[in-house]
């Protein structure tokens, strides 16, 4: 029992040290989401803490979330393109640009619990407003 307790307390010490080290490293790390923006959102939701490291931690967590969603979407995009390329080689160059589309994003977000259904009839390409007759010509 004593041994166990000692182990757990040691473990806690290790965790504590690791956490302190991590939080200290956050002071040097600049997240993509700026502190001011995070502070604004935190203050808006009633979170009050003067510690900058916690703000940074929130920023890093959010950045991780967005990066995961984006990388998922990127994988979807690449998979879709590799499927398309086999069929049509002419369009290969056109489609090879990596574009974040609603289609890929909604698939990526579904994995993280957000159900986005993108409106199929409101296309958001710039050619949407153009006269269909002229487009046909």
């Amino acid at each position: 029992m004593n041994h166990n307790n000692q182990q757990s307390s040691d473990g806690r010490h290790d965790d504590d040290a690791a956490l302190t080290e991590f939080l200290a490293s956050l002071m040097d790390y600049t997240p993509t989401i700026p502190d001011e923006l995070v502070e604004h959102y935190l203050a808006k939701s009633g979170f009050h803490c003067p510690d900058v490291r916690l703000t940074r931690l929130v920023a890093v967590a959010t950045q991780k979330f967005v990066a995961e969603v984006a990388s998922d979407a990127l994988q979807q995009c690449k998979a879709r393109q590799s499927a398309v390329v086999k069929d049509k080689r002419d369009k290969q160059q056109k489609d090879k640009r990596l574009i974040l589309t609603m289609e890929d994003l909604s698939k990526a977000l579904r994995e993280s619990g957000v159900n986005v259904k993108h409106q199929e009839y409101f296309a958001d390409s710039p050619s949407t407003g153009i006269d269909p007759a002229s487009r046909e010509e």
């Binding site: 967005v66 969603v69 984006a70 990388s71 979407a73 990127l74 995009c77 640009r97 990596l98 574009i99 974040l100 589309t101 609603m102 890929d104 994003l105 977000l109 986005v116 993108h118 958001d124």
Partner: peptide
């Protein structure tokens, strides 16, 4: 690694 983004997708994200 994205080069571009649809406006609606970016706003959703």
């Amino acid at each position: 690694g994205f080069k571009a983004a649809q406006r609606s997708a970016l706003e959703t994200l």
